[in-house]
Design a protein around this nucleic acid. Structure first.
Length: 1145
RNA sequence: AGAUCCGUAGCUCAGCCUGGUUAGAGCACUACACUGAUAAUGUAGGGGUCAGCAGUUCAAAUCUGCUCGGGUCUACCA
């Protein structure tokens, strides 16, 4: 234990960080903080694994600060919080990085470089920046176990993933299906949603869009669904047409005068693959008689009624059909029939662009029994744009695929994987649907298709259409949606359960859980697991060539057994995987070489897919423990998590996959509380990106300002879930305002405590025996403890931090210390002084605990400095102590209120002094304060000493309530009266404004009738009482007054001869203190003083000699006619020569 | 396109849930003061159509609806 509190030259947060960090490392403070809670209730935290192949950014610092502070807080509360770190090591970003580095593309893998070498490279790169990450982790003070992290590429980890998959497989949640996925013909690869969400992939492009005309087949060619022919929509349509055009109703073929269904597309190249037209069941459709604007032939078209104005001008309605010619600009039109979408279901139409490849025979070859070319229903259809009827090509759209399957339309994929038409699509065969090959003379096939349609009377409108369309971020070419084989997890099977369990999760902010996440769950689709990449967890599914038999492997030993079987059956060349040493690598290409044997004795090959990396991280609760192969206990204790936190961008990422797997595998939530933090933007509100060059380097920031100021700023500036505009100036402010103030307070304490040798060795003085101001600051402190704890409990660290800030600034520094300064350096070391030391010590000590979660270094520094002298705690770090507990008995709200009164009164008096230009050092005799009621009088009496001392006033004259010296002013209490009076409120407010003292007093006595003439006016009587008034002092005759709310002060500004002398004496003291300080004297150095004789000041100095000598620690004060080598000082406009000599030299 | 968050002083944010009188704080700016905590502090001042419009109400920054602007996420959008 040291004898003295360490004093510092100036606040240096970075060096505090360094010093404390070194200590933590040396003493293994983190490890100890976990060990100390051995056997205590666990608080479970999951670390969302970062990927170490990129550098950490400032946004990592905020989410990790959040995680860290919660874990620290819970530890201090007595929980044991183990924090296993982790690394995300698979996935596309890593592969892409490697490709870039090697200068290759996906197609080169397996050709220019073997998969083995490629994966080896990935494995090397994965931990490239691990050092940097470890560095920032330590420097920012993030406590997480980096010595035993989980690493997603390790066999143990993968083995658990396989176990999870096989569990899902057993439950029937794993299935294979064709799905429509984003596909880049230019790159020849499917794209993940991740890739599609790279910045800049969605671009505004102008495409040729076409409204195509699908001719309905005649009634006799159509087989209406159920019911009589007469009731069907088709008959309605043909009746309407024949009637309106006076064509004899033969029921026969109307040729080009027939009805056409209009359907819009921005991708005309999908039209040859059209197999259906989808309408909305509840949408109103209209049959419009008009002309084709290109061919000028009379036609009848069907489209959504709501969209008719989009294609037809109002002036053309019921226009002159007879007069229409090629030159007519205005298209005449007329609605001749209307129907609901549901009525149209089942109608047949002529194929738009028939060819050899899309004949009915071909279609049925692919999909036996398919029934294409009919109108079907779909709930995704809107009337937002297009025609309200969706051209449906099942191969090229997910919705199309779904409804196509449901309605047995079949499927046509007339475009190959290179993005060109296959043979049998007429003149379009062999042409690329978009310019994928950068051909200079590329002619847009979409335009040609449109032209063909125009010529054939099959296009109603062709125009350039600007829309937002996804592009392959690598080739910059538009993607298409294309059918690909994939494996899925049937998450939709447990959708209801996921929704239900989600309601039990504590989301911060709540809106993310109900809104963003809730909506996402409601609209959930099955989880597409397949990725056709190389570096990732292989899908452990083996399949026979015909796909009839599959096996899902759930562990390495199971795999070995199966290999043995296969070896015995003669398929596998080796009896086991990985040779004698059991050194297996569960990655490609090794697993792909394994051939297993099916139950029926046929060879099986592995499905070449990898799984979505999100599965890796979503399964971390199990895989981090290598469950169920090991650590069953550890897993049981740590599932589900009490708390997780990540960026809000993880809502549909990690938060989702954790939840999905928790529900699928264990019918449980995976976490009980989740905090999602917002983005970190630059100071102008732009997203940080390397491209804009506005990224903040967290290393530099922490180096410059220390971790504490950075953390404090990040946490207190905005709620974690609001996006944060990061401004370095903000950190500077935190450093100065908060840490600077707290540091000064500590310095102040240390300075005097060292002088007096205070080391808390005296008995603890009961709070009730301490002065009122001590009781007050301790009351505020305990209120703060309560507030802070409850905010931390609610996962509102921002509020907690702000409360601490307010306390330090407003209460501790600018009131308690300011008022109590003298108590620390004046007088003997006895009761009052010890009270002051104990009180200030307790404040600082408690603060170190309260702030420890957010500012761990500074808090520990403060704690250690204090504890080094007193040894009050037997812990070697604040992080090992218990979080401060509020002592209810020390909270005195009335005391806090009257201190507020004292602060307000002082502030008002100081402002009056300022107004009349009388400095605080000049004592004044009296201040009047009207007390509006007995309680207020009582309160002021209790704090009058404080007010007098603070403002240098000799007496406070309380003016009691019934004093007619002051004039009162009343205002209506809108809140109480408004409810009673309603519309008469305004009138009442005016009445009350005009009240005089007598009336106000009358109201205070009891019920007062506001409208005596109510009977004559035929109104209800209005009674008001004191509650309905807010009374303030309007005026005190003859005095300068100032007021705040109901508090008013009136200052007597006359300065008597005596007061003037006292003021001079104080001014003189002040000047001598200045000299002491400038001369570098110690606080305790005693001096002797000589002053030049002066008629103006001498009487004052003599009269207050004792006071002066006591203040400036002078043993003698002498007057001489001349002071050689004196210092000139100015005291209230009088010049003096003084000589200050340090004694004992 | 949908969902969601946000829009209050030059800047960063309170206040909004639970409507009430003159909308606050810090930073920055200006002036003055203070000075044994001093790279601090106090006092005063300028600075606001509370994004806009409409509605509910005696009363709207606050409640409701719409619009606009920004962020994020999601998206098969024809």
């Amino acid at each position: 234990m040291s004898a003295k509190y360490t004093e510092y030259q100036q606040l240096n947060l970075p060096s505090i960080s360094e010093e404390i960090l070194a200590r933590w490392q040396e003493e293994k403070t983190f490890e100890k903080s976990v060990e100390l809670r051995e056997g205590k209730q666990p608080f479970v935290f999951y670390e969302g694994p970062p990927s170490a192949n990129g550098l950490p950014g400032i946004h990592h610092v905020i989410s990790r600060t959040l995680k860290d502070l919660v874990c620290r807080y819970k530890t201090m509360q007595g929980f044991q919080v183990k924090r296993k770190g982790g690394w995300d090591t698979h996935g596309l970003p890593i592969e892409l990085g490697v490709e870039k580095e090697l200068g290759i593309t996906k197609e080169d893998i397996g050709k220019k470089i073997s998969v083995e070498e490629y994966n080896k490279k990935c494995r090397e790169v994965v931990m490239r920046y691990k050092d940097k990450w470890d560095d920032i982790t330590q420097k920012m003070g993030y406590w997480v176990d980096l010595n035993h992290p989980y690493i997603t590429f390790e066999n143990n980890y993968i083995e658990t993933l396989w176990w999870c998959l096989s569990e899902l497989y057993k439950k029937g949640y794993l299935y294979e299906s064709v799905s429509i996925q984003p596909y880049s013909p230019a790159a020849g690869t499917g794209l993940s949603s991740h890739e599609l969400n790279q910045p800049g992939t969605y671009k505004d492009v102008k495409d040729t869009s076409a409204v195509a005309m699908f001719r309905l087949t005649s009634p006799h060619q159509t087989s209406p669904r159920g019911g009589g022919f007469e009731d069907s929509a088709i008959s309605k349509i043909f009746h309407a047409i024949t009637e309106s055009s006076q064509v004899p109703s033969t029921g026969g073929d109307l040729g080009e005068a027939s009805a056409f269904i209009l359907a819009w597309t921005t991708t005309p190249w999908t039209l040859p693959s059209n197999l259906g037209l989808t309408v909305g069941p509840n949408i109103d459709y209209a049959l419009v008689k008009t002309f084709n604007p290109y061919t000028h032939l009379p036609v009848n078209v069907i489209l959504a009624k709501a969209l008719v104005p989009k294609y037809f001008k109002p002036e053309g309605e019921n226009g002159d059909f007879e007069a229409y010619t090629v030159e007519t600009k205005l298209l005449p039109w007329k609605i001749i029939a209307e129907f609901k979408g549901a009525e149209l279901e089942g109608l047949s139409y002529e194929q738009l662009l028939p060819g050899d490849a899309n004949t009915l025979e071909k279609i049925r070859e692919i999909t036996p029994g398919a029934e294409p070319f009919k109108v079907i229903l779909g709930d995704f259809v809107t009337t937002e744009d297009g025609t309200g009827i969706v051209h449906t090509a099942p191969a090229f759209g997910a919705d199309d695929f779904r409804v196509g399957k449901k309605n047995n339309l079949g499927i046509l994929t007339l475009v190959d994987k290179e993005g060109k038409f296959i043979d049998g699509v007429g003149e379009f065969s062999g042409r690329y649907v978009k310019n994928y090959k950068d051909q200079k003379d590329y002619a847009d096939v979409n335009v040609d298709i449109s032209v063909k349609l125009k010529k054939e009377n099959r296009a109603f409108k062709v125009e350039k259409y600007e829309h937002n369309y996804p592009h392959c971020w690598r080739t910059d070419k538009p993607i298409i949606y294309y059918p690909l084989d994939a494996w899925f997890i049937k998450t939709t099977a447990v959708k209801d359960r996921m929704v239900e369990l989600n309601k039990t999760i504590n989301w911060k902010p709540a809106a993310t859980g109900t809104g963003r996440f809730g909506n996402w769950l409601e609209n959930m689709v099955d989880w597409n697991l397949s990725r056709s990449r190389f570096w990732g967890t292989p899908l452990p599914i083996w399949k026979t060539e015909d796909g009839e038999e599959t096996k899902c492997i759930g562990s390495i030993s199971e795999l070995q057994q199966e290999i043995k079987k296969s070896y015995d059956a003669g398929f596998s060349k080796v009896p086991s995987f990985g040779g004698d040493l059991g050194e297996v690598d569960l990655h490609k290409p090794y697993v792909d070489d394994i051939i297993l044997v099916s139950d029926a004795g046929r060879p099986m090959k592995r499905v070449p897919d990898l799984i979505d990396v999100w599965f890796d991280s979503g399964a971390m609760p199990y895989a981090q423990w290598h469950f169920p192969f090991e650590n069953k206990e550890s897993f049981k204790e740590s599932f589900p998590a009490d708390f997780i936190a990540e960026g809000v961008d993880q809502t549909r990422g990690w938060f989702y996959t954790l939840h999905a797997l928790g529900v699928l595998l264990f019918d449980s939530v995976a976490y009980k509380t989740v905090v999602s933090n917002g983005l970190v933007l630059d100071k102008n509100g732009n997203k940080m990106s390397k491209r804009l060059g506005n990224v903040v380097n967290p290393f530099e920031t922490i180096e410059q300002f220390g971790a504490d100021a950075t953390r404090w700023y990040l946490i207190t500036n905005a709620s974690p879930w609001d996006s944060l505009k990061f401004d370095i100036e903000g950190i500077r402010e935190v450093q100065r305002k908060f840490f600077g103030t707290l540091y000064n307070t500590y310095q102040f304490f240390a300075l005097y405590a060292n002088v007096d040798g205070f080391s808390f060795k005296e008995d603890h003085i009961p709070v009730k025996d301490r002065p009122e101001i001590d009781q007050w600051i301790l009351s505020s402190l305990n209120s703060l403890v309560k507030e802070t704890a409850s905010q931390f409990d609610e996962y509102e660290p921002t509020q907690a931090g702000r409360a601490i800030e307010d306390f330090v600034d407003e209460h501790l520094s600018n009131w308690y210390v300011r008022l109590c300064r003298r108590r620390f350096w004046k007088g003997e070391y006895e009761h009052d002084k010890i009270c002051a030391y104990q009180t200030l010590y307790e404040c600082l000590e408690t603060l170190s605990g309260l702030m420890a979660p957010i500012a761990p270094f500074f808090a520990d520094w403060l704690f250690l400095n204090l504890n080094a002298v007193t040894g009050r705690s037997n812990q070697s770090s604040v992080h090992h102590t218990d979080f401060p507990l509020a002592v209810e008995s020390m909270i005195d709200t009335d005391l806090e209120k009257r201190m507020q009164l004292a602060q307000d009164a002082s502030s008002l008096i100081l402002s009056l002094r300022k107004k009349v230009n009388i400095k605080v050092r000049q004592p004044l005799q009296k201040v009047f304060i009207p007390a509006l009621d007995a309680q207020m009088a009582q309160r002021i009496k209790q704090v009058e000493g404080i007010i007098m001392a603070e403002t240098n006033i000799k007496e406070i004259d309380l003016l009691e309530a019934d004093n007619d010296f002051i004039r009162k002013k009343a205002k209506a209490n809108f809140k109480t009266l408004g409810k009673k009076l309603g519309a008469k409120m305004k009138w009442a407010a005016e009445q009350i404004m005009g009240f005089d003292n007598a009336t106000i007093d009358k109201v205070a006595e009891g019920e007062y009738l506001l409208n005596p003439g109510f009977e004559a006016a035929g109104e209800e009587p209005i009674y008001i009482n004191s509650e309905d008034l807010e009374v303030a002092t309007d005026h005190i005759p003859g005095y300068e007054i100032a007021a705040k709310g109901s508090l008013t002060v009136a200052l007597d500004i006359s300065i008597s001869e005596d007061l003037k002398k006292e003021g001079d004496a104080r001014e003189f003291v002040n000047r001598i203190q200045g000299i002491r300080k400038d001369s570098g004297f110690n606080l305790t150095d005693r001096i002797s003083l000589t002053v030049s004789e002066n008629a103006d000041l001498q009487p004052a100095l003599i009269q207050y000699k004792d006071y002066i000598c006591a203040e400036i620690l002078a043993d003698s004060l002498a007057f001489l006619p001349v002071i050689p080598d004196g210092t000139e000082i100015e005291v209230n406009d009088v010049l003096l020569q003084v000589n200050v000599l340090k004694k004992g030299k």
